[in-house]
Amino acid sequence: MGRATMDEQTLIELLIERKEEGFRELMRVYKDDLVNFAYRFLGSYDDAVDAAQETFIRVFRFIDTFQQGARLRTWLYTIARNVALSMLEKRKQRGMLPLTVSDEEGQELEREIPDESYMPDRAVDATIVAQQIQKALMKVPPVYREAVVLRDIEGLSYEEIADVCQVELGTVKSRINRGRSMLQELLRDLYEELFGNKSS
């Protein structure tokens, strides 16, 4: 997160007044976080930038609906998540093959299998390890992936994630645990390379 030059309340007031100064400040503070979140969730840098831009546009258009007392950061991640999810949906319609899997809550979830032409942006993840982790992340179903990214990469609290994903706190915890387990399984070989012993 960029260093804020004004307190959140002042920033919100500027945004409600549609002042460009406030809008620029909002982007300066949060743009990198949102691009990073979107990139780890979508796996494409261009899509991530597009999603972050769309997020700020929606903030500008719907700032009137922002509830006083809510946290701006949580609201931004909520919008970014919705934008990213709709982009995933569009991408799936373009050529990603869905497979259904069941989660621990008994719900049928669609699992993405990337086609061979789609590869995460290698320029961003310069190291082999980073590429492998991102590749593994993209194999985790979106509901678990977003929880893991928000918690372990973006550093949001469980309560914030519950607000962003609009689910119960218990659901957030179970999704994070399930997502981590999947990632561990997917990164088993990487673990052996990095740490030398086979993990359980």
Binding site: K31, D32, V35, N36, A48, V49, Q134, D152
Partner: peptide
């Protein structure tokens, strides 16, 4: 270890002309 790996992933920045 997983959290360590995820935390060490390079941070992605917005491009220069983002705003």
């Amino acid at each position: 270890m997983l959290r360590l790996l995820l935390g060490q992933l390079p941070r992605v920045s917005a491009p220069e002309n983002f705003e």
